[in-house]
């Protein structure tokens, strides 16, 4: 199996590469470029968000995710390139096109001296005509009805985040752009958000773009992912296809066996990086870059080394794809050296 290709996807993979109308896409950007002075934030972004899906927009800090979302919402002007919203070209001056878009860009921003409900009331006065009853409805969606009359300055970060999501849904938009929506949410809030967004797409046929660095969260929610780094889209496509195409086997061992297991697993794909998770609820998982059909060989080799696998499954996880594409830390060793240094993720020595 070839290593993951870090070049942009070919023309026939997922999206049309022309400026032609894109009726099946809620968002399409072509050659989108943005500079802040001398610093280039986006270097020709080609992004295609299919209608009615959850699109996970992934990238390391500073990769250009937020800049892209700002461009989509008319906060910034692109230096080059085009944007299409719902199949029609969108420019800086077509502000009414945003009537169908709800967004939460960066941190949720509100008037601190107004209550949550008052903030939504004030916000509903701008943009598309919004029914006042919708305010109660979205507050209910995000579980904030009980605190709707409290001033924002008394809210926790998670509550502000919930209100930000409510604000994004205020005008019943066809497209939701959410920048790090899980920030500050407690586990219950994250589950609720996931269910709400699922309902939003599956039941109402709306489109959601989530920019996030929480790969596990995106993996559970997204239908399609786009991975961006240095202002360029490295990979885009249905999540299932990406995971399948990665050609990997995931194996879980006891955390105390990880160092020993790493030595065994490296032998299977000496020219490809080996990923291991040494902490959290995913601790003990390795991702090995070999064909899933060879999973039994791995099990046999581990048993031969006195290690018993607690889990073995074909496919990949989003994190390993992300790390390999972006070239960030997380590899155990690739390829192994005679005297390996300390693993980037702090794998036990």
């Amino acid at each position: 199996m070839d290593p993951l290709n870090t070049a942009p996807l070919p023309a026939d993979h997922f999206m049309p590469r022309t400026d032609a109308p894109t009726p099946d896409l809620a968002v399409a950007t072509r050659g989108l470029m943005k500079r802040y002075g001398r610093q280039i934030a986006l270097t020709g972004l080609d992004m295609s968000v299919p209608t009615g899906k959850v699109y996970g927009f992934l990238g390391p800090n500073g990769s250009g995710k937020t800049t892209a979302l700002r461009l989509l919402t008319g906060l910034l002007r692109p230096n080059a390139g085009t944007i299409s919203l719902f199949g029609k070209p969108y420019t800086w001056h077509d502000w009414t096109r945003l009537f169908r878009v709800g967004s939460l860009i960066e941190t949720p921003s509100f008037y601190p001296y107004l209550s949550g409900a008052e903030n939504l009331d004030v916000l509903s006065a701008s943009g598309p005509p919004t029914d006042k009853r919708r305010i109660d409805q979205v507050l209910e969606y995000v579980g904030m009805s009980g605190r709707a009359k409290s001033p924002i300055q008394t809210y926790s970060l998670g509550m502000k985040q919930r209100l930000g999501i409510a604000a994004a849904m205020l005008s019943d938009p066809d497209l939701l752009l959410l920048d790090e929506p899980a920030n500050g949410l407690d586990p219950g809030g994250m589950v609720a958000m996931r269910e709400t967004l699922r309902y939003f797409t599956a039941e109402l046929g709306k489109t959601v773009v989530i920019s996030s660095h929480l790969l596990h969260e995106v993996e559970m929610l997204a239908d399609v992912v786009g991975i961006i780094d240095h202002g360029r889209l490295l990979r885009e496509g249905p999540l299932h296809d990406l995971l399948e195409a990665a050609g990997r086997v995931r194996v879980r061992v006891a955390p105390e066996d990880m160092t020993k297991a790493a030595a065994v697993l490296r032998e299977f794909a000496p020219d490809r990086p080996l990923y291991g998770v040494d902490s959290g609820d995913q601790a003990g998982w390795f991702t090995v870059g070999i064909a899933p059909a060879r999973a039994a060989e791995i099990n046999r080799a581990l048993v031969g080394a006195g290690i018993y696998a607690a889990g073995l499954e074909p496919g990949s996880d989003l994190e390993s794809i992300f790390l390999e594409l972006t070239g960030r830390t997380g590899t155990v060793a690739a390829p192994p050296t005679a005297e390996p240094g300390p693993p980037p993720m702090g794998l036990p020595q």
């Binding site: 008319g74 009414t96 921003s109 916000l123 701008s126």
Partner: peptide, 15 residues
């Protein structure tokens, strides 16, 4: 200062 202008513009309101 409070970033609320961002919300208004992103909702499609004319500046």
């Amino acid at each position: 200062n409070w970033g609320v202008l961002r919300n208004v513009v992103a909702r499609g309101e004319s500046r």
